[in-house]
Design a protein around this nucleic acid. Sequence first.
DNA 1: TAAAGTATTGGAAATGATTTTCATTATCAG
DNA 2: CTGATAATGAAAATCATTTCCAATACTTTA
Lengths: 150, 150
Amino acid sequence: MKEQPWWYGRLKDSGARLTEPREIVLEILRSAREHLTATDIYIQAHRMKPSIGLTTVYRTLELLIKLGIVQKFELGEGKARFELVDKPGGEGHHHLVCLKCRKIIDYSDITNDEKEFLSRVEDRLKRKYDFKILDHLMWFYGVCRECRGS
Amino acid sequence: MKEQPWWYGRLKDSGARLTEPREIVLEILRSAREHLTATDIYIQAHRMKPSIGLTTVYRTLELLIKLGIVQKFELGEGKARFELVDKPGGEGHHHLVCLKCRKIIDYSDITNDEKEFLSRVEDRLKRKYDFKILDHLMWFYGVCRECRGS
DNA sequence: TAAAGTATTGGAAATGATTTTCATTATCAG
DNA sequence: CTGATAATGAAAATCATTTCCAATACTTTA
Ligand SMILES: [Mn+2]
Ligand SMILES: [Mn+2]
Ligand SMILES: [Zn+2]
Ligand SMILES: [Zn+2]
């Protein structure tokens, strides 16, 4: 039997069907090394199966977000970007954004130190604000080497 | 002589004039207790001075962002929200977002622990990715008490 | 001070991402 | 198979943001 990706069960449990357009969108996200926009995904999907519509891409992304399989974020570009959520129980990852060229670096080598720190903060917030914390996002903004010159 | 707000010098140094529309936008941001959209700001500004145009609000926000006086963020609502940056040298603040009702809580009681931790991480990123880090944003997502019921 | 140059403004139109509508097609339970 | 439901795609509608352009306000120069 073949190894199923981590999100497979989640999709099935939700009652949604794993249709071809959905498979294609997921495959595009899986193999992406950048953070794609809906249109990026549409263009690639369209190459694999020209009948796919942009609307379906949006709808698929919406579904996957609701299921916690895809994460959406906006960086002030006027359009959203999407990426597959890290496998649950894994490390998670954060982001470094260059304010000049808008390059985004995924930063996944989280130290134990950091993991411990984050859970401590989450604990504190939970107590203080009575919030059930499910996730966090950390973004660091700066200027990359190229954009600072030599 | 009157106490100037911390951003006053920054605006002046940039060569930009502190015009009435700009003063109004800044005053609205200063007295806001939520994170406003451009239209929110426009509606309030329009009340104080009906001649102000939405375009000017956008342009003013753009200027203030460039000067580091205002921070913009998007939360997947399809529109941006803005807030005045914390006074430099101050504590900074983070955010708690309820995924159900979209309520946002400003969380500013940062511990020394957290400050120290963040500067350590920034240091590490600087070395590892050769990035000059200027700022960071930490968002925690969860569900507020009201949205969990009883 | 008057003229000229530059910065700022506001309204209208354009843009572009996302959502909605609606008719068609694929899939599933009985 | 038959009827019910889920999923799809194209076109139209929305809506935040940007662009254009002509009018004003302010500053500098002569
Ligand atoms: Mn990422
Ligand atoms: Mn805030
Ligand atoms: Zn860069
Ligand atoms: Zn809530």
